[in-house]
Amino acid sequence: MSDALNKTQDTPPRDSVAMVKAEGVHKSFGHLEVLKGIDLEVKPGEVFCLIGPSGSGKSTFLRCINHLEQINAGRLYVDGELVGYRQQGEKLYELRDREVAMKRRDIGMVFQRFNLFPHMTAIENVMEAPVQVKKQSKSQARERAMTLLERVGLADRAGHYPSQLSGGQQQRVAIARALAMDPKLMLFDEPTSALDPELVGDVLDVMRDLAESGMTMVVVTHEMGFAREVGDSLVFMDEGVVVESGHPRDVLTNPQHERTQSFLSKVL
């Protein structure tokens, strides 16, 4: 984690560049328009929370950031570079799969349903990408994986398969797996929604710890408590548009917009 911090400190001008910048982002699935012009900016080191009712497009937007979904209009930048395209003059060129994969190395993603590789043990899950993608030596990757598992409190579960772990433990392994690539940005897609209530706390603790270390995080969540305590910015989305944004404490305690008010009155 300190690596990521150093990176931003070593290159001060980078600080002025937004980590994520969306300009009029549109996305449709067939005739269904899911994102109808999203504008937002995530600053480096910030914990950026996305909330809203299901179907509001927040998960889709998150998936656009690492190009799991392709946007139809607008511009989306990560760390100053276009997502999924290369611009030369007026023309946009689609990136090759290899180039897209290259960019995804720097963006960690945590899924609602964990998506751990079931045929690998916890530590093998964490080692997989460093060894296969970054070509690290196995011993080096193993050492680093062990440190990360310790950090998420699961060093004693290193040899367990995902099916032998609880949901909360699986999700913490998934976070360690994403961190193993030393990302500069972490995306969380409803990381606690599939968990039993008593397991949510462990995962949120790991995320809080990560936020304190200075990681830039974009978090789609229904955990309003987490958003209020840890979040630096918050956006409320509904029906594919940003309805309201600001500091989490302001938006959550004193929502200006009527849709925000009615949503919050249901979830708080």
């Binding site: 799991l68 799969d97 995804r104 960690g108 998506n115 590789f117 990408a129 993608v133 994403a178």
Partner: peptide
């Protein structure tokens, strides 16, 4: 998706 998100081709 998980594999792709980790940068695997």
């Amino acid at each position: 998706e998980a594999a792709q998100a980790l940068g695997m081709g």
